[in-house]
Design a binder for these strands. Structure first.
Length: 219
DNA sequence: AGTACCCTCGGTTTTACGTCA
DNA sequence: TCTGACGTAAAACCGAGGGTA
């Protein structure tokens, strides 16, 4: 178990709002038991009542862990630092902790959580993108199937499309949907010798994280 | 190869705080 | 206006796994 902050309610500082500025700086807290000092900082002016020092004394041995909210200024500096580097080496961590009057462990945990939030956000964006992509592919699929129906209905000889490679007409009957990537391919075994010919139906992928998830050409 | 130490990560718990009935 | 339930964000913790000396 790590050292737990031993604090009273007066430890509460502020809600952390990234990107905000100016708030009183904090006096130093020691590395180990340093939180008793922090209560002097109380920027929220939370009445500290009678509970001086440590009010902990939990029933099950260790003191209950209390959290402090980082001040706006602390959050701002941490964010700023995170923008420059998503990870810290021990020296940077120590320096930042000193600057912010936090324990190195707190800085470490903040970066850890910040990386996790960052990743979560990225994942959510990718998910959103894939949903849209799926929607557009579904729509495209619907359109193409309609088109095939129409061509079949016309019955004016074997329907044809142009090969993207040779510009020669291909029988539409050679078109099929790849079950894996849902792309339309022409499976003609003709002279092209490069196997199934992929038509250009996939949307442009901007996200680098997503580019690797594009169905492979081998599909 | 085995070990100790450190770091990061994913998952979880705990706490603070805002909202709403 | 007060209050308690509830949801959410974030700080803190834990254990696993990888890298290095």
């Amino acid at each position: 178990m790590a050292v737990l902050p031993r604090s009273s309610s007066s430890l509460e500082l502020t809600i952390s709002v990234p990107g905000f500025s100016s708030s009183p700086s904090l006096p130093s807290s020691g590395d180990q038991g340093g939180f008793a000092i922090l209560k002097d900082l109380d920027i929220n002016q939370v009445p500290s009542g009678g509970e001086e020092e440590d009010e902990e004394e939990s029933s099950n041995g260790g003191p209950p862990r209390k959290k402090l909210r980082l001040s706006k200024e602390q959050s701002r500096l941490l964010e700023e630092s995170f923008r420059q580097n998503h990870t810290l080496n021990p020296k940077q961590k120590e320096a930042l902790a000193t600057q912010l009057q936090l324990r190195p462990r707190q800085v470490e945990v903040w970066f850890q959580n910040r990386r996790a939030r960052s990743k979560l956000k990225q994942t959510e964006m990718e998910c959103e993108y894939l949903k849209r992509w799926f929607g557009s592919l579904t729509e495209q699929n619907r359109r193409l199937q309609r088109e095939v129906e129409e061509l079949r209905a016309m019955k004016v000889g074997p329907p044809t499309v142009l090969s993207p490679h040779s510009s020669h007409p291909l029988p539409a009957s050679t078109l099929s949907m790849c079950p894996r990537c849902e792309r339309v391919t022409s499976t003609t075994a003709a002279a092209d010798n490069s196997g199934p010919t992929r038509t250009t139906l996939s949307p442009k992928v901007d996200s680098p994280a997503l580019q690797s998830r594009q169905p492979s050409a081998a599909c």
